[in-house]
């Protein structure tokens, strides 16, 4: 198949493809290890994606669409080869009607505090590892939409094509994924005892915060 694709490409096409892949390699690898949650699998996924993209390149309609196009190949390859067979069912078991969790509403203080800004403090305290762990904990289908839209900044339409679902499904999965992600960040912060900066009187009123 690679031979067929190569025969249809001239040297300019080949050079352009190699340049694009080189430029996007950190993004592809970043997306791959977030999807696979494993660096070795991520490397394999990127290599397979590049090989498939080469074969499919003659079918790429516009070069401007390259990024969304190659992420679609990466996502399809991940879904078909790396995602567990029961993962697709994970999304169905989620509480679709559950109330959305808002991190802001838990952190926010409705009155201005002279001793600080709890929202900013919370965000300033977030580490890269906190975010990675929270994303890793998402069910597979929800993790995929977060990786495509929030991490890799694909449009809803590009994500929908990549996942083979309607745009409405992207919206609903994204809402659920963000809700779960924010709840995990909140729970982890709570477990670590770094919730928000609170006045001593507020702490005294919440004995469950002392553990």
């Amino acid at each position: 198949m690679a031979d067929v694709a190569t025969a249809q490409m001239n040297r300019t096409d080949q050079s352009w493809f190699a340049d694009q892949v080189a430029k996007l390699l950190p993004d592809l690898y970043g997306g791959a290890i977030r999807l696979c949650r494993d660096r070795t699998d991520g490397e394999d996924l990127v290599a397979e994606t590049v090989a498939k993209a080469w074969e499919a390149l003659p079918g790429l309609r516009t070069r401007d669409a390259f990024r969304g196009w190659i992420f679609r190949i990466l996502t399809n390859t991940y879904i078909s080869q790396y995602r567990s067979s029961r993962a697709q069912g994970d999304v169905d078991s989620l509480d679709a009607d559950g109330e959305a969790f808002s991190l802001f509403e838990h952190v926010h203080q409705p009155i201005l505090l002279w001793w600080g800004n709890p929202e900013q403090d919370f965000l300033n305290g977030l580490l890269r590892e906190d975010l990675v762990q929270a994303i890793d904990q998402l069910p597979d289908t929800l993790r995929t939409v977060v990786v495509l839209v929030d991490v890799q900044a694909l449009s809803y339409r590009e994500a929908a094509v990549a996942m083979g679902v309607p745009i409405g499904t992207v919206r609903s999965r994204l809402a659920r994924a963000r809700s779960q992600l924010q709840k995990t960040l909140w729970d982890d912060a709570h477990d670590a005892g770094i919730r928000t900066r609170q006045s001593p009187s507020q702490r005294e009123e919440k004995p469950d915060d002392r553990d």
Binding site: T6, Q14, P26, D27, Y29, G30, E43, A51, L123
Partner: peptide, 27 residues
């Protein structure tokens, strides 16, 4: 924006070499 900061990962030399070899073989 913090989540988008996870978009890129440093590419291990082995992966760069693997992709480079792949493209050369295809060509």
């Amino acid at each position: 924006a913090s989540i988008a900061g996870l978009a890129q990962e440093p590419v291990p030399p082995e992966l760069s070499q693997r992709v480079h070899t792949l493209l050369r073989e295809f060509t």
